[in-house]
Design a protein around this nucleic acid. Structure first.
Length: 398
RNA sequence: GGCGGGGUUCCCGAGCGGUCAAAGGGGACGCGCUGUAAACGCGUUGGCUCUGCCUUCGCAGGUUCGAAUCCUGCCCCCGCCA
């Protein structure tokens, strides 16, 4: 049995985790590592299938950071090779194929963004690409494939579900968990983290390590964070994400838009504490938004973001900083608004017309009426164009 | 290899010769309301030189006064059997 300090440490490190398996394995590993005077190698693999990291990733990255702060080494694997395969976890259909260029670009931003949360100290962080070792020859691939049976693969839920519903499962998808397991072999992981949807893959990594004569990693799964819709998991493709590089204003506003019920999860998983009971939901959420912006940007920017939000959405005034849009006057000395909006906002002229039609556009606080598509130069010059609730442009007639 | 089912607007999905820029849902956007970029309600959701015109229903041809709807060929996807 591990001694008390590791027991305590492992409990602390496993906080918020859904699974930490096998039972007691983490404490044992911490204990053994301490005795040998070495650090644990804590693995996380992320496939650069989308260009940005969001708060969902931040849950797991934050946990990794705790391991770093406890003196361990995080091995961050940017899955540039596996991204070409596509993780079938939680998927009901085959992922689309990404081009190498896209993957490379994503890989770079991923790495940069992850460092906003992780400690970059080389003693604490090792960043690897799995293309370093996944250029396997056929012999090696066959050896890898021999470690696992079809029955084992079909045990996993998403495959089982698809299988029973006679949905397709591609060979490529079957291959994915094996490659992820091979990553664990390549970096000799002591522990691998992931979301709960990764449980199968993480556990399979153990079997593969064993087959390669390595000690098996422990695994830890973290809860999946819901997106700003409060229903589905946070994901870029569902458009319900808060990116960790979102601007302070955007991050603040998106946070306030999460349903009250989701607040607890955000507090626990991202800020590692219970939501304040002494505050009402409104203030608790405002505090949450400030803290998140403070964490990923800075406390000063958090204050500014809140002030901006109050000004624009509570007081309904124009923000202090407004982007300029230079516009041309027509031959008749009028400014054609659909044109201006199309150019400045990247929408179609038809859409711009519709917005005006529906009373969604105002010029210096005065709503435009339906059909008011052209405006005199004097009125446009220097005026603030407001489209919807949150898009502002100061017009500069040239 | 054989048999069968499909490819529709951002997504899912109806339509199966005119009344179709195409039902319904989701999402997004706008307005109202609100502590909120929430919830709820109403509305909008191909483009444009906008009471009309142009382009869209896998691709290419064809039939027809008229095609998302019928025919031919091609491409792609799915299932079953082997």
């Amino acid at each position: 049995m591990p001694s008390a300090p590791e027991e305590g440490q492992s409990t602390a490190l496993a906080r918020n985790a859904v699974d930490c398996l096998p039972e007691g394995a983490l404490a044992e590993k911490l204990d053994a590592a301490r005795k040998d005077g070495r650090r644990l190698r804590v693995k996380l693999g992320i496939d650069p299938t989308a260009p940005d990291i969001h708060l969902g990733h931040a849950v797991v990255l934050g946990k990794l950071r705790e391991f770093q702060d406890a003196g361990h080494l995080v091995v961050l694997i940017v899955g540039d090779s596996t991204a070409q395969v596509g993780d079938p976890s939680g998927r009901s259909t085959l992922r689309p194929m990404l081009s190498l260029q896209e993957i490379e670009a994503n890989a770079q931003t991923f790495q940069d963004q992850a460092l906003r949360i992780l400690d970059p100290d080389p003693e604490r962080l090792e960043v690897r690409r799995n293309s370093e070792w996944l250029g396997l020859g056929m012999t090696e691939v066959l050896r890898l494939m021999r470690t696992t049976t079809v029955a084992q693969m079909l045990e996993r839920d998403d495959f089982a579900k698809r299988w029973s519903q006679a949905q397709p499962i591609s060979m490529l998808e079957l291959m994915y968990p094996l490659l992820q397991g091979y990553d664990s072999v390549a970096v000799r992981a002591d522990l691998e983290l992931g979301g709960t949807d990764q449980k199968f893959n993480l556990l399979l990594g153990r079997d593969i390590q064993r087959a390669y004569g390595q000690p098996e990693q422990a695994i830890m799964t973290m809860p999946i964070l819901v997106g700003v819709d409060g229903r589905q998991k946070m994901s870029k493709s569902l458009g319900n994400h808060i990116g960790i590089t979102d601007s302070p204003e955007e991050m603040y506003g998106k946070t306030l838009s999460i349903p009250d019920e989701a607040m607890g999860d955000y507090y626990r998983l991202l800020l590692h504490r219970e939501p304040p009971t002494e505050l009402g939901p409104r203030d608790a959420k405002r505090l949450l938004a400030r803290e998140l912006v403070g964490w990923l940007h800075s406390p000063e920017q958090a204050q500014a973001a809140e002030a901006h939000f109050d000004r624009v959405f509570v007081e309904r005034e124009a923000p202090e900083q407004i982007e300029e849009a230079s516009v041309q006057a027509g031959r008749d000395g009028m400014v054609h608004l659909p044109d201006v909006m199309a150019q400045a906002l990247g929408i179609s002229r038809s859409e711009a017309r519709r917005l005006i039609e529906q009373g969604g556009v105002s010029l210096d606080e005065i709503p435009l009426s339906a059909g008011e598509l052209d405006v005199a130069v004097d009125r446009a010059q220097g005026a603030v164009l407001k489209v919807g609730k949150r898009r502002f442009r100061r017009l500069r007639v040239s």
